[in-house]
Design a protein around this nucleic acid. Structure first.
Lengths: 228, 228
DNA sequence: AGAATAAGTTAGTTGCACCTAACTTATCAT
DNA sequence: ATGATAAGTTAGGTGCAACTAACTTATTCT
């Protein structure tokens, strides 16, 4: 009954298991172990279901889990998560580059295909579009082997007035937000200047190209930039 | 608890259900209703499992089923089967045309992707490679709406000596066979001449281009041709 | 026609992945 | 330090999709 028991040929892990690993990977990036309720919320699943799955993932050696104290990926779990994330991001990149998808519509498609695509297909897709280093939203693509070098980034919300930065990455989980950001010109690679910040976490005024826009603090926290 | 109950967004039907419908569609093409054991064999599943699923498919209105007398697709079932088959064949064509897959390796990949790909993706793939009418093995691609015009074909085994024909389609379920056929030049579009047939269902000698080959009756039955 | 064989079904079980209801453990605030 | 609240878990149940063992129905062969 080890993880290798699964009969699926492709990733060896079921779709749901891969989804949990991705969620835990993401939650863990902030340093803390991934809490049951946080996983539940992210996956839109009831907390007791998460308790059960977490037990199984621990049994499979993909996470460690102290009761009532959250889950942490093991090396094996992290590798599996990153391989799934690689599949997801390569697919997103391919759909936009090769098949004309807009950047706000690739997420859902990738979310399903990532569980069905073989490593060979992913490699061929990556090759066909020139081995990109990021997905359309600027998220870095892990290597085939399941490693990832994250760039040093800060949120747009954390910049001080007058600072200039390069947009590195935006969160991809809301099509509406993505469409709005594209309208503003806030896309990876763009240069933004922080013109002014209202106090008490108020709106931030930014300059992109020739035009200025006011964005809420909430939204600004979803935009990752590198200082210039 | 109707078929519409399923929460899956993409095809509305689970992967296994789609596989059963495809199998039944295929078995039914020979006129007879699809027998339980035949479905079981095709899907490598135990007969009792098929009995159970067949009951469910009938409940969903996708097939009709008389106990002990096999299953027949309803109009809805046929449409669903053909839409899955369309996905499968478009994917096969796309993988060979756009991503450099060889024709003997597309089947397995398509078998998994067909359950995860949205109709939009399939349409974009089809468009990207010029709306092909057949997959790499010569099988016709159903329309978006789930209709299909089958060509009038006979098996190579049924030709009489001296006849010339065009290869229309070969079965795609064995990579080894596909590699061998490619070696012989027996690919859709090729012209073959039946030189000689040994009696008692013995080997058949065919001429493809400049070279002659002897093929067994078994293999010849897997090659569909149109008389010239 | 009746027995042998083939085909199909029912009965009962399993693992996965979810659910709700009820309970326990941890944390935080007074 | 204790009681409220938040977080997490156990208990028990569901549907799907598979399985084996045992039985029933249909067909075939003499």
């Amino acid at each position: 009954m080890s993880a290798a028991r699964a009969i699926k040929i492709v990733p060896g892990l079921s779709g749901p298991v891969e989804d949990y690993l991705k969620a835990i990977y993401d939650l863990e990036r902030s340093g803390e172990p991934a809490e049951t309720n946080a996983i539940a919320k992210r996956l839109s699943i009831a907390p007791p279901s998460v308790s059960g799955m977490v037990r199984r993932l621990a049994r499979y050696g993909l996470i460690t889990h102290e009761k009532y104290h959250g889950a942490r990926l093991t090396a094996a779990g992290r590798k599996a998560a990153l391989q799934t994330i690689r599949r997801h991001r390569v697919i997103e990149a391919y759909l936009t580059e090769a098949l004309g998808y807009s950047w706000d519509r690739v997420h859902d498609e990738a979310e399903r295909l990532e569980h069905a695509a073989s490593d060979e297909l992913i490699d061929r897709m990556a090759k066909a579009i020139g081995e990109p280093e990021t997905d359309p939203h600027g998220a870095p693509i892990p290597t085939r082997e399941g490693t990832l070098k994250e760039k040093a980034v800060v949120t747009l919300a954390s910049l001080s007035a007058g600072a200039t930065a390069r947009v590195e990455r935006v969160s991809d989980d809301s099509p509406e937000r993505l469409r709005y950001l594209k309208e503003l010109g806030v896309v990876p690679g763009a240069t933004v200047k922080l013109v002014e910040r209202a106090p008490f976490d108020g709106p931030i005024t930014i300059k992109v190209g020739a035009s200025k826009h006011a964005v809420g603090a909430e939204l600004a926290a979803q935009i990752l930039v590198a200082r210039r």
